Amino acid sequence: MDMQQELEARFADRAAAGRRLAARLEYLRDQRPVILGLPRGGVPIAYEVARALQAPLDVIVVRKLGVPWLPELAMGAIGEGGSRVVDRGLLQHERITDDLLAEVEQRESAELLRRAQTYRAGRDPVSIEGRTVVVIDDGIATGATARAASLVVKQRGAARVVLATPVLPPELIGALGRVADELVWLCAPEPMVAVGNWYEDFEQLTDAEVVDLLARADETR
């Protein structure tokens, strides 16, 4: 990608990226989708998509279950409602006992519950049973969180999962396309380097900002 192409591919901020992504997802309007943003960065993008498609907005809170001695290596993931995915092959390879897995899961479950309660501020989760669900993040780097979120949403009963993001590395397109029913992106630069490189404004969001966006979306439903 040359310098001119790179400049054209960049987004002013997450809201601008969300509006562009919404235009790409307009074909889903008649399917009455549910829009789920990965907190924190995916929520302002999901907010714009939900507003454009007149769809309900919620967060998708997932916690990776990291191997204790290799925390970046995911042996599974958990989501709300008891949803859980585990890589049995990795457990066997790393000789992880059921007790150790349970210990990690218990710790991450507490944090998952805390975050979900913080973001929703007393609101009930949006039902996704039998619905087309669009899972949104502000960018995908390794694909671990996006993959976990897609699997968790399927476990929670979604009829169809669309994984959408403004930017991702091209080498992940095939793998993520096999996890979600559909993968939608705006640009797949080579090299990508880092998600933040593709935004002019990539300020970190606070929990309060996520809560505000969800509240605003709820008011307009």
Results as ranks from 00 to 15, higher is better:
90 L>C: 03
129 E>S: 13
97 T>Y: 11
71 P>W: 09
113 L>F: 06
31 Q>I: 00
39 P>W: 10
208 A>D: 14
185 W>S: 07
203 E>Q: 12
147 R>S: 09
110 A>D: 14
110 A>S: 15
159 A>M: 13
135 V>T: 03
44 P>R: 12
174 G>A: 14
192 M>K: 02
217 A>C: 07
104 V>C: 11
102 A>F: 09
49 V>D: 02
215 A>I: 00
50 A>K: 03
192 M>G: 00
3 M>K: 13
37 G>R: 00
11 F>N: 11
107 R>K: 14
149 A>F: 08
218 D>M: 06
178 R>N: 13
10 R>W: 05
172 L>F: 06
18 G>S: 08
148 A>L: 10
127 S>I: 02
81 G>T: 08
139 G>Q: 02
71 P>T: 10
138 D>T: 01
22 A>G: 15
92 Q>F: 05
196 G>E: 08
69 W>K: 00
68 P>A: 07
36 L>M: 13
22 A>C: 09
123 R>N: 07
4 Q>R: 14
96 I>S: 03
121 A>H: 13
132 T>H: 01
153 V>D: 01
103 E>L: 14
208 A>R: 09
71 P>E: 10
36 L>A: 03
121 A>K: 12
86 V>C: 06
9 A>P: 00
126 V>D: 07
174 G>Q: 13
64 K>G: 03
25 L>D: 07
33 P>R: 01
125 P>R: 08
20 R>I: 03
19 R>K: 15
71 P>K: 08
49 V>C: 04
40 R>W: 00
60 I>C: 14
25 L>F: 06
108 E>S: 07
30 D>S: 15
44 P>M: 12
30 D>C: 05
117 Q>Y: 00
205 L>D: 02
153 V>N: 02
33 P>F: 02
164 A>G: 02
146 A>W: 04
9 A>K: 08
94 E>H: 12
72 E>G: 03
195 V>M: 11
105 E>Q: 15
48 E>A: 11
12 A>Y: 06
208 A>P: 01
186 L>W: 06
120 R>P: 04
50 A>F: 06
178 R>W: 05
200 E>R: 15
85 V>C: 07
58 D>H: 07
185 W>Q: 02
81 G>D: 07
221 R>L: 14
212 D>Y: 01
127 S>D: 15
166 P>H: 09
199 Y>F: 12
75 M>C: 10
73 L>A: 08
10 R>Q: 15
77 A>E: 02
189 P>N: 06
149 A>C: 10
118 T>Y: 03
107 R>T: 11
94 E>V: 13
218 D>L: 08
171 E>M: 08
126 V>P: 05
191 P>N: 06
125 P>S: 03
210 V>P: 05
105 E>I: 09
30 D>K: 15
201 D>I: 04
151 L>N: 02
165 T>K: 00
87 D>F: 09
44 P>E: 11
89 G>C: 07
77 A>M: 09
151 L>E: 11
89 G>T: 12
